[in-house]
């Protein structure tokens, strides 16, 4: 089943003259991981916004095209400072499931599970403002995972993590994939593309699809 389908996405930021994204098409099956890569400033984060509906709902500009999502989206933004807003890590993780109206017991279980999985158990009672850059990225990821999204977009979430933590997050993603989640990671580091089933290269004239293994071998 296709979890995400995008047709002819075109977007121009307000005040800009040329579009950042120009008629982009793609689709992703549930249970697949796609890695989106491309030069800095080519529009990867913008594509991520379109994919989960932030564009056109919350960012002004000229949008056309269609995005079909089968399931709940969750996005980890590139800048964790703008994502995290609760005064404690625990509250941050609770925010999503609270919005879904889950009972307290279930929320407690989710927080415990995700904190354990992501490795932020020791941070639960801390104020996120007092965390290191990498720790903030983990908390941002945790806050999205407790929402239990079906479609996950991660915007360079691995970038500020140390090697061991990167491996752990990649393991988590493989598990989520087995549970039928559709995952899109935005990533520059070639060594992290090994978990992807598809590699999408975003360029001026569109999205270039590359078979996963060959691409990482070539580079």
């Amino acid at each position: 089943m296709k979890a995400v389908e995008a047709r002819e996405i075109t977007f121009t930021y307000q005040g800009q003259t040329s579009p950042v994204l120009d008629r982009i098409d793609f689709s992703l099956e549930a249970g697949e991981i796609a890695a989106l890569t491309g030069l800095s400033g080519c529009g990867k984060s913008t594509l991520g916004y379109c994919l989960c509906g932030v564009i056109p709902r919350l960012i002004k500009g000229d949008f056309s095209g269609e995005v079909i999502l089968r399931g709940r989206p969750g996005i980890v933004f590139q800048d964790p400072d703008t994502q995290i807003f609760m005064p404690s890590v625990e509250a941050e993780l609770a925010f999503g499931p609270e919005n879904l109206g889950l009972p307290r017991g279930a929320i407690a279980v989710r927080i415990a599970d995700i904190a354990e999985l992501v490795g932020i158990n020791d941070l639960l009672m801390l104020n996120p403002a007092q965390l290191s850059g990498g720790q903030k990225q983990l908390v941002a990821l945790g806050g999205v995972l407790t929402l239990s999204p079906d479609i996950i977009v991660m915007d360079e979430t691995l970038a500020q993590l140390d090697a061991a933590t990167q491996e752990n997050v990649k393991r988590i993603l493989m598990t989520l994939k087995q549970h039928g989640k559709a995952i899109i990671i935005i990533e520059h580091d070639i060594s992290n593309l090994d978990i992807a089933d598809q590699i999408w290269l975003l360029e001026r004239d569109g999205l270039l699809r590359m078979p996963a293994r060959k691409a990482s071998a070539n580079e």
């Binding site: 850059g133 970038a159 500020q160 520059h188």
Partner: peptide, 8 residues
């Protein structure tokens, strides 16, 4: 961490 956000 000067390389975050930069492509190769």
């Amino acid at each position: 961490e000067p390389t975050t956000g930069l492509d190769q």
